[in-house]
């Protein structure tokens, strides 16, 4: 069942953010910054866009999502829990011994996770394989792949981009979570990455730039991607690392650090005030 009300989707995204903070705080480990930056994207995909049913998590004809930036597992787990794939209580077990919620997503442990990821740069190739298979089977599945902007430093991303273009994979939609920061600093300073749109366009993609926190703009972008025929689409989502928690926003320090108790309480207070 698709959620179309924008306010309702915003509220869900806020719940997803609370789940992310809860996971990372309970684990005292994990990656809050990049998880918060892709929370709106994941919410729109799982609640508004994707053809999925949490009651039939292994339906062969479902749409697929590959979270290639696997370290942002807290965001994926949180949205899956919101969607009813498993209990929200389980989020507290994230990264703990015997939890199915591994530090990076494991498709064999969590129903709803479509691909095991973690080693950056690999997810897009897998998504390309899924898109090819769907075309071969005339299954009509759409394949979404979220990559980090830092992640596209990896050469394999561009190998996969070439295959996607060559095979006219218009059922593939790549989303770049363009929060401008990677572990060691700004993306343009670390590997000199700029003009992401131009790069993908030169690889034959249809490119859309969008505010990655604007729900209705995201919906429009995904709609445009669906209408685009004969080539894959990349949505370059301009985002803020740590979005939603004031002291984490745009701070590279929050790439992979958990909040302490005091910080956790401030973060939750901020997120709770959004719903009121």
């Amino acid at each position: 069942m698709k959620v179309t009300d924008i306010e309702c989707l915003k509220n869900i995204a806020n719940e997803v953010r609370k789940g992310i903070i809860e996971e990372v705080y309970q684990a005292q480990s994990g990656h809050p910054g990049g998880s918060l930056s892709c929370a709106d994207i994941l919410t729109v995909l799982y609640f508004n866009q994707m053809n999925i049913d949490s009651e039939k998590p292994q339906d062969m004809n479902r749409d697929r999502l590959v979270l290639s930036k696997g370290h942002c597992a807290p965001a994926l787990y949180s949205v899956l829990a919101e969607k009813g794939y498993f209990s929200k209580d389980e989020l507290k077990t994230f990264r703990k011994l015997d939890s199915k919620l591994q530090g990076h997503p494991d498709m064999n442990k969590v129903l709803g996770v479509d691909m095991t990821t973690g080693s950056l740069g690999q997810g897009l190739s897998v998504a390309v394989g899924m898109a090819l298979a769907s075309k071969m089977d005339h299954a009509g599945c759409r394949i979404y792949c979220i990559v980090g902007d830092g992640e596209i430093d990896e050469g394999q991303i561009w190998e996969a981009a070439m295959t996607a273009y060559k095979n006219h994979l218009d059922n593939l939609c790549v989303i770049v979570d363009n929060n401008q920061l990677q572990l060691d600093g700004r993306i343009d300073e670390i590997a000199g990455l700029d003009n992401i749109r131009g790069k993908f366009e030169s690889f034959g993609f249809s490119a859309i730039e969008v505010d990655g926190h604007n729900i209705s703009n995201l919906i429009d972008a995904f709609h445009t991607a669906k209408q685009t025929k004969g080539k894959p689409t990349v949505i370059i989502a301009k985002t803020v690392k740590g979005k939603g928690v004031s002291f984490m926003e745009n701070k590279v320090e929050w790439h992979g650090v958990a909040p302490n108790k005091e910080q956790y309480e401030i973060a939750m207070k901020e997120l709770n005030s959004v719903n009121n």
């Binding site: 691909m115 740069g121 190739s125 897998v126 394989g129 394999q156």
Partner: peptide, 13 residues
């Protein structure tokens, strides 16, 4: 490297 990943995607179908 890309080839290995594409194969994985195909196998999930």
């Amino acid at each position: 490297q890309n080839m290995m990943g594409i194969a994985v995607g195909l196998s999930t179908f």
